[in-house]
């Protein structure tokens, strides 16, 4: 269904560049096939593809989609879902222990600054470079950012665990600290055993409720 979004995003451009119905049909046929990549990084492909269409290089326009969709999909998933989102969330959670408004603002800003940058930069650079984007795409920079975010994420994890353990708002006494550490260990093991998160949470909740009745 991403191809539908692609054609939708290109609609103003199509109206301008292809005045006749037959030209539009050709364009839409070329671009309505299977297409899958990361929803933010698609802007690089969109920019390059439209530039090539403008130059009358329809075949190259399809090729650029084929070349970039998989690699950009992988980079996008690693950068945004596996790295930036958790890092932003951890920062937000740490700040939420002190100031909620600041926490929400920082969380949304941290994530969306890079999000919007990729969307806008992708469209501009993709359009400027055309087919050359296949060679000049700054994938190495994105990989460096991912590595940095992973290191930062680990650092923040350590900080978060201490922060949550020490905060009177969340933990407090010895039984609560014990429960926190039990939860941490159990969840780590459940995920390692590939137990889906909702099941793991349900098991832990039942444990907490059972403990609540006993203690």
């Amino acid at each position: 269904m991403l191809s539908l979004g692609f054609c939708f995003s290109a609609a103003p451009f199509i109206k301008k560049l292809f005045p006749t119905v037959s030209q539009r049909v050709d364009f839409l046929r070329r671009h309505s096939g299977f297409f899958n990549t990361h929803p933010y990084f698609v802007s690089y492909i969109l920019g390059a593809s439209l530039r090539l269409e403008e130059q009358g290089l329809a075949k190259e326009s399809e090729e650029v989609k084929l070349h970039l969709s998989r690699s950009l999909g992988a980079v996008g998933d690693s950068l945004f879902w596996r790295s930036l989102k958790p890092v932003s969330v951890i920062v937000g959670m740490l700040l939420a222990l002190y100031n909620l408004t600041l926490a929400l603002a920082v969380f949304l800003l941290l994530f969306n600054v890079l999000h919007f940058w990729v969307r806008i930069h992708g469209l501009v650079v993709g359009y400027r470079e055309g087919f050359e984007i296949v060679k000049t795409l700054p994938l190495a920079i994105f990989h460096s950012i991912i590595k940095f975010l992973n290191n930062l994420g680990s650092f923040l994890c350590g900080l978060l665990i201490v922060g949550l353990l020490a905060s009177p708002k969340t933990v407090g006494g010895l039984p609560e600290a014990t429960a926190f550490i039990c939860g941490l260990i159990f969840m780590f093991v459940f995920i390692k055993w590939k137990i889906p998160v909702p099941y793991a949470l349900a098991i832990l909740l039942m444990m907490a409720v059972a403990a609540g009745f006993i203690l």
Partner: peptide, 23 residues
């Protein structure tokens, strides 16, 4: 019923999940 353990246990679970993600 003592509901005081629910929040720390599940926050610990969350910490375990992100630790798994990054560690």
């Amino acid at each position: 019923f003592n509901g005081g353990l629910i929040e720390p246990l599940l926050l610990g679970a969350g910490a375990g999940a992100v630790l798994y993600l990054f560690l």
